[in-house]
Amino acid sequence: MSADADLVVVGGGPIGLATAIEARLAGLDVIVVEPREGPIDKACGEGLMPGAVAALDRLGVHADGCDLAGIAYLDGETRAEHRFQRGPGRGIRRTVLHAALADRAHQLGVRRIVGKVTGLRQDAVGVRVALGASRDLLTPWMIACDGLHSTVRRLTGLARVPDSRKPSRFGVSRHFALAPWSEFVEVHWTPTAEIYITPLGPELLGVAVLGRRGLDFARVIEQSPDVAARLSGAAPVGTLRGAGPLLQRTRRRTAGHVLLAGDASGYVDALTGEGLRVGFAQARAAVSAVVTNDAAAYERAWADSTRDFRLLTSGLLAASRSPLRSRIVPAAARSPRLFGTVVERLAR
């Protein structure tokens, strides 16, 4: 097979670009396939854990943002907070982060094709990637980073059918021209949803709401008098953006010469806020597996890198859906050492 590149990365979001950068730093020739042009926005909390900040530094990616001292959970007058022990996190507007990653990828010589994967076929030596009527790409390896609703996950048969008995959760976010009032990412717990407040700059806040299908952003904000009062009169920046359903399961993360990374590889929920940290770790492990020609090694590395995320987030999500929901923040406030231990495990 005469390959078009050593590696084809499907998806040009933050994890796809980080994967491409990892691959170029490892000496691979890389093509990124992405249908959208320009910086890609997304409904998310936009707060990077210290581990994610360190990963960006290692990749040579530098983006303007706002230092984050830690994480705080709030429910009415009750507050539980933990300061990061290994340096600050960073609040970075998603479009700013994407532009910085794209610039670094371009600097390293990553090639980009504007297109959408419509099919793929594999044999013993590689993958033929169909891009509609335009062309096919031949590559020894593919890493799919094409998000929550991954086309490649479906084409490879790696997706698991969701459990219809579990209610789906969704996210909605918006930005406000307002000076941050805290150096922490604040997670305000309401009876029906969580509100993430992330400082992104001297006069910019990101506000994300997570809850069940059909959640109303304005009504959820009203459920937290403190947040509603602080946002009163603040000018919104841009439009509301939504994402979901958040829960995505996979049978495996590998199928022959195709690997899944980032949200495409499976996603539990955003309650613990370390999606990019985990995604960057997956990007590094996936490229290592390509270099060593060992897909099984990636399956093991994926399990290791996501274990804390899956266990802790699943447990917290189960509690948030139960009668224990109202006790989560008070319990964290009564056990600051335990709360801090959990945050540090997720932040590293």
Rank of each mutant, 00 (worst) to 15 (best):
K166T: 15
G157S: 03
V187Y: 11
A297D: 01
T78N: 06
L137I: 09
N293H: 13
G242I: 04
T95G: 15
Q85W: 00
C145M: 01
V342G: 00
S232A: 14
R128Y: 04
L346W: 01
V227W: 14
V33K: 13
K116Y: 07
P14K: 08
D29I: 13
R86D: 05
W141L: 02
G115H: 01
F184D: 08
R111C: 01
L205F: 10
K166W: 14
A55G: 03
K116G: 02
R36T: 15
L28M: 15
K166G: 13
A144S: 07
G211N: 13
T254D: 00
P167W: 04
F217N: 08
I40R: 15
D57G: 10
R174I: 08
R334Q: 12
K116D: 04
N293L: 09
G340V: 00
A303P: 02
I31Y: 08
R327M: 13
I15E: 01
A235L: 12
A52T: 03
V10N: 02
G262K: 00
L316H: 11
F176P: 05
A295P: 15
V291H: 09
I197T: 12
G262N: 01
T190F: 07
V287M: 07
S2Y: 10
G275N: 06
V110Y: 10
S182I: 08
R121P: 02
D163T: 04
V227N: 08
R213T: 14
I143A: 05
D136T: 14
G244P: 09
A229H: 11
D41E: 09
V33N: 12
G262Q: 01
D226E: 15
L74C: 13
R212S: 14
L131F: 01
V32M: 08
D146C: 12
V61E: 04
L324D: 09
V117I: 06
T118I: 06
G76Q: 13
A55D: 03
T198Q: 08
A235Q: 15
P162A: 03
A20E: 09
R337Y: 08
L338R: 12
V30L: 07
Y267A: 01
R94E: 08
A331I: 05
R230K: 11
G87V: 03
L138D: 13
C44F: 08
R230D: 02
R310A: 02
L74D: 03
A218Y: 05
D75R: 11
A318C: 03
L108Q: 13
V187L: 14
V152C: 04
A289N: 01
V291P: 08
G340D: 01
C145H: 00
R83D: 03
A102P: 06
A285E: 04
P88Q: 01
S2H: 10
A54M: 10
V10G: 06
E186R: 15
R251T: 05
Q85K: 12
W141P: 04
G91V: 03
A69G: 09
D57V: 04
G233E: 04
A72M: 05
A3V: 06
V152S: 02
G340C: 00
T250V: 10
G115R: 06
D263P: 01
G45S: 11
